[in-house]
């Protein structure tokens, strides 16, 4: 028997309205994720180095780097800089 892979989504779309704000937040996170990946494409970097490239506040970059780490996009190299920061690099997941 074939299974309609979006059959119940149609049901809730009639009942539940998604706010534009949530969609925008999701787009923003995807942009940040790509920007982190781009910053790391030239090699491992510390969070302050990533923040400098991205031009975002440090605390926001830490949150997003750690979130990307949790989702398996990046990982720490195990190396620590002279000023006590871990280096992060891209992992296999795109």
């Amino acid at each position: 028997m074939s299974w309609d892979k979006e059959k119940t989504l149609k049901y809730i779309k009639k009942k539940h309205k998604v706010s534009e704000e949530k969609v925008e937040e999701t787009r923003e996170f995807m942009k940040i994720r790509k920007a982190i990946a781009k910053a790391l494409s030239s090699g491992p970097k510390t969070i302050p180095q990533i923040a400098e490239i991205m031009g975002l506040p440090l605390a926001d970059v830490t949150y997003n780097v750690m979130t990307c780490r949790k989702y398996g996009y990046i990982e720490e190299t195990g190396e620590v800089s002279d000023d006590d920061y871990y280096y992060y690099e891209l992992k296999g997941r795109k």
């Binding site: 969070i47 302050p48 605390a59 830490t62 780490r69 720490e76 620590v80 006590d84 920061y85 871990y86």
Partner: peptide
């Protein structure tokens, strides 16, 4: 642990 290490939430620095 969410950071896989003890680091500062501001900048990921290892606290001393």
């Amino acid at each position: 642990r969410p950071y896989n290490a003890v680091v500062r939430p501001l900048d990921g620095k290892i606290p001393e």
